[in-house]
Amino acid sequence: MINQRRCRSIGSIFLLSVLTGLLLFSPAVALAVQSQPPVQTEWWVWEIALFVFSFFLGIIAVIAGVGGGVLFVPIVSSFFPFHIDFVRGAGLLVALSGALSAGSPLLKKGLANLKLALSMALIASISSIAGAMVGLAMPENVVQLSLGATILGISVIMLLSKNSAYPEVTEPDTLSKILHIYGIYYDEQLKKDVSWQIHRTPVGILLFVVIGFMAGMFGLGAGWANVPVFNLVLGAPLRVSVATSIFVLSVNDTAAAWVYLHKGAVLPLIAVPSVAGMMLGTKIGARLLTKVHTRVVRKLVITLLAAAGLRALLKGFGI
């Protein structure tokens, strides 16, 4: 048993080491560090590198239980020669396409709740548009600085947050009663139906406004923030929180993506290999989920994320 655990830990560390090695020693890094236009490298080399990189990112994102979007922007903007405008545009599409492809089964199973999502997404999507407009108007060093600080904050949240599988909500608030936000789903772990209701709805809506703004500004998927708000603030069960977060993400990222499209910050040459690589990697990652030590990978990914955040911060300071 202990040997098996040790093997899984070693396997997990190996997997992440491969990715980190790929990051640090690839020709992409050497060029990105110089901040020069990549004239000496054929464009298709970057396309393949981006696809392969996104593929590995997709694998570890699933294993670590984090959204691909939040890893994509800080790491790709640090190690590839693309301007952060295009990386943020691609990051939004990575998060959006992941949410679109995952959304249908979650809605069919009743895990994602349409009414809960719509109530939070309406104002959040407007703030997401505002965030995208502010983000694209800010000077590059300010973007890097704020991105670095945000990513470091996300790393801390991910490290410290303790979700609650079945939070207890004794009395739903008035707004959630008016909006008929409650539900029931079949829990495969408990093998029974679980009813749920929520409280603190106005606080939740306000928090989603802030999350939407940040997601639009940095092109990040916002699962890292959506899930704790649904789960810990509103009191929705963890499975409902994760599933509904994906739905909200699809609405908010759509709104922000249009700002990036209008500002010319979406290049299919960067967005499509990222989306395809990430989606393929996510499928492989889901199969590997039981074979690697997820907690070890999660901690290593948080470390990697913190390193990328620190790098963005240093770039912002011109170091």
Binding site: S35, Q36, P37, P38, V39, E42, W43, W44, W46, E47, P81, F82, H83, D85, F86, G89, L136, E140, K263, G264, A265, L267, L269, I270
Partner: peptide, 12 residues
């Protein structure tokens, strides 16, 4: 694609 790649390090 090669022409885009020559300029993708610039702001949008």
């Amino acid at each position: 694609p090669s022409e885009v790649a020559m300029h993708w390090h610039l702001r949008a």
